[in-house]
């Protein structure tokens, strides 16, 4: 399989282990990633706050570049990126009168032919192969955390169930993990308030961490860099808010799958987390 790849900015910096683990896992599964050349930021959670047209033009440039490279499908592992790309694509479909202005801004033709997929969709296609190649089952209890942007708004993302999604749970079961019953699957972590309103992030993410532990989870599994950085980089603030030391690690789904495939924890970027990925008995994790 060959697929276009849009890593996005977080995957070059604060969430580079998501990029590393995505590349490592897909390589192990013989998927060739073709990175979109000279890609730009999608505008994430900022552009739409300040200017609607900008929030469409930024993703449109990425999609137009992918079209020019002859790509028909691109994987955007970051949930915020895939959400913004899908939003822009649909806005332009719904409002063709905007197209001329957008094409003028991006200085390229835009056809809207590229299919945008998230990491869970790609892993799901490879589920049988992953199950067959699993050498070290991830025999842990896990809380599958989808967050907001993978499943909402349903009319934009059209992916899984918006209230009780199942795709990540299925993948985790395929690699030997046991997802716990967890009502926080799609609750918000505080998203882009990480820097400006850390108090809100501590509270919202704190509730998630507390309940995941209460339900016996050994790890919280995520597929979004913002969710991960709030649960991992902001753990000190979370623990201060909760007045307790919670040590449950937050892991990317690609890291969990990678461990199950027997890949080197370092190649999966496990050493980059603030909250160490350590369990009472180890499952393919050597520290």
């Amino acid at each position: 399989m060959r697929i276009g790849y849009y890593p996005g900015c977080s995957l070059l910096g604060s969430s580079r282990e998501f990029d590393e683990s995505t590349r490592a896992v897909l390589k192990a599964l013989d998927v060739e990633l073709v990175e979109v050349a000279d890609w730009n930021c999608c505008g994430a959670s900022s552009a739409h706050i300040l200017n609607h047209e900008l929030s469409i033009a930024l993703p449109a440039r990425i999609l137009a570049l992918a079209e020019q490279a002859g790509l028909t499908e691109i994987l955007a592992p970051c949930a915020a990126c895939s959400n913004r790309l899908l939003s822009a694509q649909q806005e332009l479909e719904k409002h063709p009168e905007m197209l001329a202005g957008i094409e003028k801004a991006i200085e390229m033709p835009y056809k809207g032919t590229v299919k945008i997929v998230n990491i869970l969709e790609v892993l799901d296609r490879l589920k049988d192969l992953i199950a067959a190649k699993t050498v070290e089952p991830f025999a842990k209890k896990v809380a599958s955390y989808y967050g907001c942007l993978l499943v909402r708004p349903p009319r934009v993302v059209n992916f899984d169930r918006p209230e009780d999604p199942q795709s990540m749970d299925r993948m985790l079961r395929a690699v030997g993990a046991t997802p716990v019953e967890w009502p926080f699957k799609t609750e918000c972590c505080g998203a882009a308030f990480s820097v400006t309103r850390t108090d809100i992030v501590a509270k919202l993410s704190g509730k998630l961490v507390q309940d995941a532990v209460k339900r016996g989870a050994d790890a919280i599994v995520v597929a979004c860099p913002m969710c991960h950085s709030n649960l991992d980089l902001r753990r000190a603030e979370i623990n201060e808010y909760l007045q307790q030391e919670y040590a449950i690690p937050a892991m990317f789904i690609t890291q969990v799958v990678g461990l199950a495939l027997g890949l080197d924890p370092k190649a999966l970027g496990l050493h980059r987390h603030m909250v160490p990925v350590e369990f009472a008995e180890t499952a393919g994790v050597q520290s």
């Binding site: 900015c9 070059l12 910096g13 604060s14 969430s15 580079r16 000279d38 890609w39 730009n40 300040l50 200017n51 047209e53 900008l54 033009a57 930024l58 440039r61 202005g101 003028k104 801004a105 991006i106 200085e107 050493h271 980059r272 987390h273 603030m274």
Partner: peptide, 25 residues
């Protein structure tokens, strides 16, 4: 942890990016 790149990642077509901003926001 290797999470802070001290230098910015520059795209090649920075002129195009300026143009994009000028045409929208």
């Amino acid at each position: 942890k290797g999470k802070l790149g001290l230098l910015p990642h520059l795209i090649k077509n920075r002129r195009g990016m300026k143009h994009l901003f000028k045409q929208t926001i």
